[in-house]
Design a protein around this nucleic acid. Sequence first.
RNA 1: GGGGAAGUGUCGGAAUUGGCAGACGAGCAUGACUUAGGAUCAUGUGCCGCAAGGCGUGCGGGUUCAAGUCCCGCCUUCCCCA
Length: 936
Amino acid sequence: MFQGGIAMPEYNPREIEPKWQKRWEDDKLYKAVIDHDKPKFYALTMLPYPSGDIHIGHWYAMAPSDARARFKRMQGNNVLFPMGFDAFGLPAENAAIQRGVHPKGWTLRNIDRERQQLRSMGAMFDWDREAISCLPGYYRWSEWFFLKFYEMGLVYRKQAPVDYCPSCKTTLAREQVIGDERICERCGAQVVKKDLKQWFWKITNYADELLDFSKIDWPDRIRLLQTNWIGRSEGASVVFKIAPEDLPDDVDPAMGDLVVFTTRPDTLWGSTFMVLAPEHPLVHVITKPEHHEEVHAYQIQASRQTEIERLSTDKEKTGIFTGAYAINPVNDARIPIWVADYVMMGYGTGAIMGVAAHDERDFKFASKFALDIPVVIEVAEWIEDGRPLPLPHAYPGEGNMINSGPFDGTPAPYPAKEKVTEWLAERGIGKAAVNYRLRDWLISRQRYWGIPIPIIYCDTCGAVPVPYEDLPVLLPDDVDFRPTGESPLKYHEGFLNTTCPRCGGPATRETDTMDTFVCSSWYQYAYLSPYYREGESVTGDATPIDPEEMAYWAPVDTYTGGAEHAVMHLLYTRFFTKVMRDAGLVNFDEPMLQCRNQGIILGEPRCGDCVDVKGTREGSAFRAESLTVYSFVDEKSWPDPVSSDTRVCGELMDRDDVSLKVRVSSDGALVVVLVDEGLAVDIPGKEGQGAITDILYHLDVEKMSKSKKNVVAPDDLVAKYGADTVRAYLMFGWRWEQGGPWNGQGMEGVIRWINRIWNIITEEPRAPEAAGDGAPRELLRAVHYAIKSVTADMESFSFNTVIARLMELTNALSRAKPALWSTEVWDEAITALLLMLAPVMPHIAEELWAHLGKPYSVHTQPWPTWDAAMLVEEMIEVPVQVNGRVRGRVTISADADEEAIKMAALADENVQRHLEGKQVVKVIVPRGKLVSIVVK
RNA sequence: GGGGAAGUGUCGGAAUUGGCAGACGAGCAUGACUUAGGAUCAUGUGCCGCAAGGCGUGCGGGUUCAAGUCCCGCCUUCCCCA
């Protein structure tokens, strides 16, 4: 390497990164301590689940968040940026069942490994505040919250049909059941309904408040998802009585009051039938004996369908008449009661009033079963000669009420809805009501590896909460893991058997544990004083968090993480904070003031390995007798594609465990190659005998997964390029909120840039030049423009343009170096560059900072500020448009007035050419930045 | 079916209030230095055209001196909900 006077080694991240990481740790550089002289800033990024490896997605989420936290710190804030582990959960227990390792050991080992991996990132995590949710010092407070919620009347236990995953062998919250197929969000198995006695938290008490986002700056997408999830609708509940003769004598007459919820009480007069959900408890009570068999068969059939199938408006409606009638309370009409699967037990009351003319599904149902379709909202375009035409479809729109007794002529839905509701209330047959889609939070899980639910069952006293003073209810270590589908706690005598805290009699403990989302609902507070008062006995009046820490740091100022938690974690934690507020534990309403979501890094598209197979034709397929593999990395040395009777050769496009799909020509023709189990497969670069599933097949953009072998491992990247390069690339390569496929090539651009920075600062110029007059000014302009842009872009999470602006500044330095090296301006410029690099690439920034002899540490320096005066240019170039097309440019003094710019523009040679023979209609000079000439 | 987000070179992506489309980087091409290059440096690179010029931000209209950006109507992809 060509060098100037000072010998300086090449950039070597393997040496400088561990060096500075150790120094920062020794110096406690990132320890967050309360300091009332500084504004606090709590930056938080979602904590990982310790599954064994930190992957590139974690880096993508955390590294830019770290850069922003560091930026905030340099701006003068006292920044807290903690990290911990969401350590309870199913994978640990599955590992225990499948491989005989204890969940605790498995989890803690994974945490040790992941903590090391996270340290290599060089983030400013304050490890002194680490919190691990599966440790008693943490979950003791999770239990405490359960008791506090219980005390506040927000906890109840009920028998209910709940979603149950047969594969995970536990119940799930409604939020954990995904989409049309009703699959488990964890394992992908289809969820079934099960009737179990379970614990619920009354999140619905806070439904309305959770709809209010006015105090937080959160992504629109999240707010919309939460709003839809809560699903508030306003309307009325109306009581329909079952016709007295249809109610069996041995039934309490009060049971004959069928309450329905409707968002359109103004259409009540058009209700000509009622529909009950197949699961409705009244169905078997009122069904006439002659209909019993049919109705029962229908109930069974309905239970087999998914919710999606049942609710689809496209679907042919099905249903069955019960033989019973109800009375429409507004006109005393006798209306038939049907059972149909398009009514769900989970929504409203599980019973609806059918208004055929004004609801699409009711219309289809009524059409199918030839029920009356009376119109009660005037539909102007469907009336001819004053008589209504048969409706082609339902009319849910506006119009005046008709055929509705006292309300004829009232405009609907407004103000008709209010008026009808008042009228119903006066008569005691209905009232205003609000319905929510949101259900209470089901927190019971039939698993071992979770927070014990602090409840004791006593034959005399019933369910009794464990006294606060007795917490924590410890999870026993010595349990048997059997794939029985029941919690091992059920068979642990020492855990199970206890005495009733109320009467002292023999009792048993609750063996279900809590949903892991309970842990993460309050972890942002746990960091403030991890494992607070561990080992001490506490009461219900205690505070789970050190009050001084809480008062200073909370709430979170910026929260970053994945959008996949929109209706689970991000809703639960808001709920949790609101309850904590009502319990007097915090004095604010929202846990995180600002929230931003990063996208997902997908796998890199890659070509498959090439296989060269000798064998014989077998119909349209080919049976392999020998097989040679050429790695996808050596594409140039692949043999040409072949498809003959004895040989098939080409890129592997897909495979399963007995066959390969091989692309045998450039037009994409595929041959299926059958491979017997014992066939020898040599994979280049792999020890010993391979299996055909080890051969890599062609991949388009897909999620990273171990089975597809397209996972990008941060550890490998750090080993090859250093953490600084990985951090910078993750900030540069994608729009952060969006993410996208990985591209290994892009990394090269960043390492080149970093090497250039290193060389620019550490090497003297090879061919110094005399400085021109404008050079210092030009460099300073570049510096101040960069400071201005980078400051704004850091603030707005626009990380890719942060890097672009820093690269531009590097280019400017590169140009200016021969003339300005070691001048005052040069020093100002490289100082500013290093300060701005510090949040992005903390190690190299520190190393070069030290190299320049500046005081340790670059990370405790103030963020540079920009001077507007520095941005002003003396001469500016103004583009000149003629009829909207750029026809010339004029360079003119920046302080020239509009008239001078106009004159210069009109004088331009090329502009003149385009004005020839035309008449200038108008000349516009917006903000002196451009000239627009209109000609005819 | 309803709601939301997105659509810009070969690729990732830039583009305050409507104001020079394609910043920055990758890739590619040419050259320099090299025993060598997948290193480094320099130059070029939206498309068509020798050029003048023309065409270009999913498609079709509109507003405007000026539209990636605003309005209307479509198409495609992804997400959420029913």
